[in-house]
């Protein structure tokens, strides 16, 4: 039964492609953020920060590029967090019973759900990246084709880990819940602080101490560190702040996401072990 996960993945993908409205609406929100908030704010910020000194060797990036990285991360966050709803529907409408009563191993089921979740996040991240570039975000600007390929691969690696973490969290909460409304409530409650206590829209070093600590360890911040490193470069100035990201910083962020995903996996594993679906 080593390919059991593929069955789960296959079904999820059928549904993903079938629901074009869902796909479009999940992309619409980040696109709107970039198109309205991004362009509006960058026309202000870029004017405000225009006169600030720039360190030698660093290049200045506009606000749209800066926040665009944050929006890619936000898309992944939303998609992964809300992916648990499918599990809840399956649980309530019974398909989960068909799956659990089959010889397919439970680990394979988790693997299948994870794989399809990551695939969905990949597709969305790529589309949002392309959209960002189309409306003027300077992703991969001045990169050689090889550098761009490495950049995309790096971003996807970060997206994958982050998506896994929140997918597991979402699945664990979903399997323990009875109603989609309750799940929706919890997810909405989670998204706000995760999104705003991160470096998605603004630098975090001037935050008050406690908020700053939360923001530094926020998985979303770790993801955005990676995206910025791979999409913009190791050395840039944005919003008047000089970002010099070393390989060590990136590895540290990556390691942080590995830990996060591992903890969430353990959590999901524990909740699924307890789940009785009859």
């Amino acid at each position: 039964m080593a390919y059991g996960f593929f069955t789960i993945f296959w079904r999820d993908m059928i549904r993903f492609v079938r629901f074009k409205t869902l796909l479009v609406s999940s992309l619409l929100q980040p696109a709107l953020w970039m198109a309205f908030f991004g362009i509006a704010m960058s026309s202000n910020f870029d004017k405000l920060t225009a006169g600030l000194p720039v360190p030698a060797g660093a290049h200045v990036v506009g606000y749209l590029t800066f926040m665009g990285a944050g929006i890619i991360a936000m898309t992944t966050l939303f998609t992964s967090l809300f992916s648990g709803i499918v599990i809840l529907f399956d649980k309530n409408w019974g398909l989960m019973r068909e799956i659990l009563a089959s010889p397919t191993d439970r680990n394979q089921i988790i693997l299948g759900i994870a794989l399809s979740g990551v695939t969905k996040s990949f597709i969305q991240a790529v589309i949002i990246m392309a959209f960002g570039i189309a409306i003027g975000a300077a992703f991969f600007a001045g990169f050689t084709p090889v550098q761009t390929a490495i950049g995309v691969a790096g971003i996807l690696a970060f997206v994958a880990l982050f998506a896994l973490g929140f997918l597991f969290l979402s699945a664990a909460i979903a399997i323990s819940m009875e109603s989609p409304e309750g799940l929706q409530g919890i997810m909405t409650l989670l998204t706000m602080p995760i999104f705003f206590a991160s470096n998605a829209l603004y630098p975090i070093d001037t935050f008050p101490e406690i908020l700053k600590i939360i923001s530094i360890y926020n998985p979303l911040t770790l993801l955005i560190n990676g995206i910025r490193y791979f999409a913009i470069g190791p050395d840039f100035v944005a919003m008047g702040k000089h970002y010099a990201i070393t390989q060590g910083d990136v590895l540290l962020s990556f390691a942080g996401l590995i830990v996060f995903a591992a903890i969430m996996f353990a959590f999901a594993y524990w909740r699924f072990g307890k789940a009785v679906v009859t």
């Binding site: 059991g4 593929f6 296959w10 079904r11 079938r18 629901f19 398909l95 019973r97 089959s102 397919t104």
Partner: peptide, 20 residues
Amino acid sequence: TLDRDMTVRETLEFHGRLYN
């Protein structure tokens, strides 16, 4: 216990795959 958004064939196909 059917997935409302899968076709008749896919429903059986999915089951067959689940059972390898």
